[in-house]
């Protein structure tokens, strides 16, 4: 298998792909990139934690107008993963309002973005309806 690289560094690849967050050791607030201090309590200590890979759809929009080159329409959404809010696209679904219900159960899924000139395959994530 060729080398792989995640779309963002908070996506961990492997047998069980998942997201990781920096969690404040004092108040538990979670952030998807580094913080000099916690935005909630100003504590300066953080630890890496795994984010739940299943959650519920908190809100969404079906985006029809976006930057040139982006395939539209797509579903932009916020997922509540066991109390941690995650920004994502909803994938493996036809982007129509009747297919999407607020509160529906979804789960993390990954897909290939293709390989670069060095043969490294990029892997992105989204959330798909949980069967």
């Amino acid at each position: 298998m060729a080398n792989q690289v995640p779309l963002v560094d908070y996506l961990v690849l492997g047998d069980k792909p998942h997201l990781v967050a920096n969690e404040c050791t004092k108040c538990g607030a979670r952030f998807f990139d580094r913080r000099s201090a916690c935005a909630s309590c100003s504590n300066t200590d953080f630890k890496k934690v795994d984010v739940a890979t299943e959650g519920t759809l908190q809100t969404f929009s079906i985006v029809h107008m976006a930057a040139p080159g982006l395939p539209v329409p797509f579903v932009s959404a916020i997922i509540n993963c066991g109390g941690t809010s995650v920004r994502t696209n909803v994938i493996n679904i036809e982007a129509k309002p009747e297919n999407i219900q607020l509160g529906m159960k979804v789960r993390l899924a990954t897909y290939s973005m293709g390989a670069d000139s060095a043969g490294t395959e990029a892997i992105a994530f989204g959330f798909e309806p949980a069967k």
Binding site: L7, V8, V63, R87
Partner: peptide, 11 residues
């Protein structure tokens, strides 16, 4: 550590 702009891929 994004390898491409994430707008449209991550919301």
């Amino acid at each position: 550590g994004a390898i491409v702009p994430t707008d449209g891929l991550i919301g």
